[in-house]
Design a protein around this nucleic acid. Structure first.
Lengths: 364, 364
DNA sequence: GGAGATAGCGTTAACGTTCACATCTACAGG
DNA sequence: CCTGTAGATGTGAACGTTAACGCTATCTCC
């Protein structure tokens, strides 16, 4: 008796079902309609409820029946229908992910970490990228995810508007923000940007620079603001002058543009950049201006992208673990989902750390 | 009469429902169980089927009824239950996405493009990242997506094993591969890597270099192989010697390592790199070896990441439009989903183009 | 003025699960 | 021998939609 080949289509090798009971006989007679529990039940000679019990690993099923059911499942190549399960249990086993600027190294790594952790926790993940951070756009994404009845939402939420929109998710759908502003409504998880900026600035100050210039990211990103704060605090604490800042947009291009201005100012000897891309642009600007880094000018970045170690010169920067951030955010969400809703414990801060390479030297 | 505030929870501002009919009176009496069509129907004084008709934009509903229903929907803040719809229509409105190395610029951009296009086409997207490209891992991802009853699958499928695993998806679930090998089973979409490699190599040859060295990506990536092919073909056509190659792993680190070997060889004057990251490493290696680019050595990359223009020197490279690739792949999938299954038209090739910057000069 | 259309609804039955029971054995204790 | 208990299984009713009809009016046309 030949192995059952279900619906051979354009030459695809069909799944080969094998059974050690004699069940495959008339198993695959009707590929007309999809196989359901009834079919499995009939083949195994039990009720659909018993099939359900087996598939859900519930007790009170004899070993022999269990085996028989599992066997029938294999023969029929049966898979549970998520929609039906969701309908009756009102659990979609899906978490929603709101992303922004997901092509950047940071967000992309977070998505990776989130997806991995979610899967391991038994959740599917549905993604909704948002093109702008305007309120309506974010609201739209929330709407999309809610329409899918996601059980929880993780928002890579760099701007306040996102955290804000998150308060609009239906009651009972927990949400977690990662890397954004803390609005007090939604648990938030992020790297301690203030601390990171302190480390970067201190490092440069310790190297003997009189003060440190800063090329921050866009003003409406909490990350950028925190880094500015950390930078400013450190300068204040050291009684160093606080130079004016001109914000970039996280891109290398913006770093290059701001860098050209800085390079024209003979007094700048140390620059702390809002991220590594900005640093790359700044590096190029100083190079073109004939002010070699790190001989005459020192530069420190933020993020530690995999490429930073191969810039010219290799970039001293602040490392943050995006994937870990993603992992932790899932942990936080799942905790809310399963255990009693955690009392909002305030923002959780992960520690970044300084990676010393070659772009920062003692003051000339 | 006060605006209805549904389930005020930990201070969240509830959605404010407003109606221009007098319907909101006893609308929100029972937030006990979720609102369904029955509730909307009752409030609007119609049958649930009429509600369904309105919500699905079906004809044969009078304007006044439609308005009344819509109004009730607003008042109750009702949303259709996807699970129930999926169950009865067997359409999940979801497409599955299999990603690999999604933190890289290319895949990340593709995901972005795919998500955007899918959303615009009215599909949700569920993502399954795969940690390795071994058969079982990919099969696992396919399984995950099928369990969600996705209507189609897009695989960012750089290796053959993925295309292979794709043949295992249940009949009736169309799949599209993007950027990978063509196995003849699944429609495949990609940038014309051979052509891109030709352009890069020709550019260097035209600059007067005797031959062009190549630092390719991993041998089991079709992209890497195609670029090798293009490079080799071009050298052959020009009757130039074909130097031996030593593959990298797409990372800047690997480029640096291979670059050190090349820099030790006085004969190499032109290097075509498998991607921009490799190029970054190669750039650094030559810099450290005291062989300035582009004065003594020329380098060309592949991908044109947003940062490449700010390398030292700015990188001449091959641009490929990842987001467009993603967009087109959705287009291809949706075509299969809606229209009659397209006869597999063979792999679709998008054209890359050369971006000339400053890393390649005339031969010394 | 009766025979069709047709627009505008409503009724009933799926869809494939899980949940809350009911049932039926076997076996122990009195 | 009867009762109680627990394990193993089956039965029927949800879950919230859409699909397939069915039923009224109203309108049109000869």
């Amino acid at each position: 008796m030949a192995a059952a080949v279900i619906g051979p289509d354009r030459g695809r090798p069909g799944p080969v079902a094998h059974s050690h009971l004699g069940l495959e006989v008339d198993a695959v007679e009707a590929p007309l309609r999809k196989v359901g529990m009834r079919d499995v039940a009939r083949l195994a000679g039990v009720s659909h409820q018993t099939v359900s019990r087996v598939l859900n690993d519930l007790p009170n099923v004899s070993a022999s029946t269990r085996e028989r059911v599992l066997d029938a499942v294999r023969v029929l190549n049966y898979r549970r229908n998520l929609a039906a399960r969701t309908l009756v249990t009102s659990r979609s086993r899906t978490i929603g992910l709101i992303g922004f600027e997901t092509t950047l190294a940071g967000p992309a790594s977070m998505i990776y970490g989130i997806e991995k952790a979610a899967r391991e926790a038994g959740y599917y993940v549905s993604i909704a990228t948002v093109r702008s951070l305007e309120r309506h756009a974010v609201l739209d994404a929330v709407e999309q995810l809610c329409a899918q009845a996601v059980e929880g939402i993780i928002a890579i939420a760099p701007k306040n508007s996102v955290a804000d929109a998150l308060t609009q998710v239906p009651v009972g759908t927990p949400a977690v923000g990662v890397g954004g502003a803390d609005d007090g409504f939604v648990p938030m998880l992020r790297v301690d940007n203030v601390r990171g900026a302190c480390m970067a600035t201190s490092h440069l100050l310790d190297l003997g620079h009189e003060t440190v210039h800063h090329v921050p990211g866009p003003a409406d990103w909490p990350e950028a603001r925190d880094r500015i704060d950390g930078w400013r605090q450190t300068l204040h604490a050291a009684a160093a002058p606080v130079p004016p800042i001109e914000a970039g947009d996280w891109s290398a291009r913006s770093g290059y543009l701001r860098g050209q201005h800085l390079a024209a100012d003979a007094r700048v000897t140390a620059v702390f950049c809002g991220n590594d891309h900005i640093a790359l642009g700044v590096l190029r600007a100083f190079h073109e201006a004939g002010r070699p880094v790190p001989a005459r000018v020192s530069v420190v970045g933020f993020d530690d992208t995999p490429e930073s170690g191969f810039f010219l010169p290799p970039l001293t920067t602040i490392h943050q673990d995006f994937a870990e951030l993603g992992r932790r955010s899932v942990e936080l969400l799942v905790a809310q989902l399963t255990g009693a809703a955690v009392a909002n414990p305030g923002p959780v801060h992960l520690s970044p750390h300084l990676v010393v390479r070659a772009s920062a030297n003692a003051a000339p």
